[in-house]
Design a protein around this nucleic acid. Structure first.
Lengths: 119, 119
DNA sequence: CGGCATCCCACCCGATACTG
DNA sequence: CAGTATCGGGTGGGATGCCG
């Protein structure tokens, strides 16, 4: 098996830090990005790949599986040819929205800052 | 050198996703936790270790160095014997506060949910 | 199209020992 | 106390190829 957040997953809660609990779900650089891209609605697998060019399809698959296992997203398979698979946020997943918006907002400001400061 | 977020760091911004930019700074499971524990004020190295028992001292050192390089935290060395080092958030680091609070809030709810549902 | 299996290398990270 | 240096195992994750 190939787990992105190996043995940390369920131990996080016990340390008393709720932040770790969140990170045990959103841990890994791609999960927040994937969830973020799912905020507007259902997205096809390939579209997610295009939206996340720095990650390989393999990684995206793995991360999506973990998010699914944690009840953050739902996987919708259309029994057609050619195959079509969409992903969408669950109700639980949608509760992450404020976090993702914060992340995007801060990231945008950080990018600006670096655009002005460094190269 | 030992970098936790190797070649992803500065590339993140260009992909057009601000969330990745944030993750290039907060990436790694321990960084959010460390920043979170620095919210109240200056904290000594050993105290951070105690607050983050799942991470080794080595990892904490490494992560702190990266956060320092990104301008999130400041390292304060007291020229005494025995040595004393404290860490505190920079102004930029303090702008992460809403994110951390969101993470904590969600994590707390998630822990509750799992306390009721599973196990 | 979507995704899994395999191979395989790089690198992460824990443990230990040492320094100022 | 607060690190750094080094070693070594384990594993994350990229590339490739095949299947439904």
């Amino acid at each position: 098996m190939n787990d992105t957040t190996p043995n940390l997953r369920r131990r996080a809660g016990r340390t008393g830090c709720a932040v770790e609990a969140t990170m045990s779900v959103l841990g890994g650089i791609w999960k927040p990005v994937l969830v973020f891209h799912l905020l507007p609605g259902r997205v096809r697998f390939n579209a997610l790949c295009r939206l996340t060019p720095n990650a390989t399809a393999r990684m995206i698959t793995l991360q999506l599986r973990e998010l699914e296992a944690d009840g953050i997203i739902r996987r919708i398979v259309y029994p057609e040819v050619p195959p079509k698979v969409e992903y969408e946020l669950t109700a639980l997943g949608r509760t992450l929205e404020p976090i993702l918006l914060s992340l995007r907002e801060w990231g945008a400001a950080f990018q600006d800052r670096h655009a002005n400061t460094a190269a």
